[in-house]
Computed example of a mutant assay.
Amino acid sequence: MQTQHLSIMFGMSNPAQTLLQIERYIEDGRMEISEVMASEFTSMLLANKKRAVDSQVMLVKGLRLFCDILLLRDKAKEGIPIVKILHKERKKLIRILKRNAPELIPKLTPPAEDYRREGNLHAAMGKYGPAKKAYSTCQKLAPNHVAAAYEAVVAMGPEKKCLQVLLNCCAAAGPVIKSNDAPRCKKASCNFTGAKWSAYLSKIICEFRSRKAGKRNYCYRKR
């Protein structure tokens, strides 16, 4: 009865519309209601053991949003079991698509992004061992993932191995070019935009060159 009441209240009879509404609430900074909606939305879909393919797609998207919301709300501890469910349901979705629509698999969000989420959640809890493992899996699945390497350094500080991964990612990213009035990595696999990224990349490149030259006075500073 409570689930039915909340479904009517939040208009959850249309899953796609519900996901868009949750995203709008996040953009507006309405984190409490977005958490309630994401929790109810994913619980409702998980309760349906005979989900159609489109419902499975919506569930995976909802779980990703739920993880992101919990991280933003400093509830990383609650996010860990959710990201584990996310891994399980994503794998289930891929198995379903392999049997029925393999051409859709490349259009899915890459699994590396979910390990990036997991790394961020563990790091926010101060669990650096599991965080490093998750970030490492992300890099194995998506080599030279600049964003994940950057987040690892920001979350755990300039730890030697994490910093070296970031330096390697930046070196592999190639030159920064201007595209549509925004800085962008020339190599598509390493794309990111925004002035913050451009400035940070410049510092990292300076750090990388200093290391190569054997200097100690690096321009990198913990952020």
Score class of each variant (00 low, 15 high):
Thr3Phe: 13
Gln4Lys: 15
Ile8Val: 15
Asn14Lys: 03
Pro15Cys: 02
Leu19Glu: 05
Leu20Val: 06
Glu23Gly: 05
Tyr25Trp: 14
Arg30Cys: 12
Met31Gln: 04
Met31Ile: 05
Glu32Arg: 06
Thr42Asp: 02
Ser43Glu: 11
Met44His: 08
Leu46Trp: 05
Leu46Asp: 14
Ala47Thr: 08
Ala47Ile: 02
Ala47Arg: 06
Lys49His: 10
Lys50Gln: 15
Ser55Cys: 00
Leu59Ile: 04
Gly62Tyr: 01
Leu63Gly: 07
Phe66Ser: 05
Leu71Gln: 10
Leu71Val: 09
Ala76Trp: 00
Glu78Ile: 01
Ile82Pro: 01
Val83Arg: 03
Lys84Trp: 12
Glu89Ile: 00
Glu89Thr: 03
Arg90His: 14
Ile94Ser: 01
Arg95Trp: 08
Lys98Met: 10
Arg99Gly: 13
Ile105Ala: 09
Leu108Arg: 04
Thr109Asn: 08
Pro111Thr: 00
Pro111His: 02
Asp114Leu: 01
Glu118Val: 06
Ala123Gln: 07
Gly126Gln: 14
Lys127Glu: 15
Pro130Tyr: 05
Ala134Asp: 07
Gln139Leu: 09
Ala148Cys: 10
Glu151Met: 12
Ala152Phe: 03
Val154Gly: 00
Ala155His: 12
Gly157Phe: 06
Gly157Asp: 05
Glu159Arg: 10
Leu163Pro: 14
Leu167Gln: 11
Leu167Met: 07
Asn168Asp: 11
Cys169Arg: 04
Gly174Leu: 09
Asn180Pro: 07
Asn180Met: 14
Ala182His: 13
Pro183Cys: 14
Pro183Glu: 15
Arg184Glu: 15
Lys186Ser: 11
Ala188Met: 12
Ser202Asn: 13
Lys203Ile: 01
Ile204Arg: 02
Ile204Leu: 10
Glu207Met: 13
Arg216Pro: 06
Cys219Thr: 04
Tyr220Leu: 13
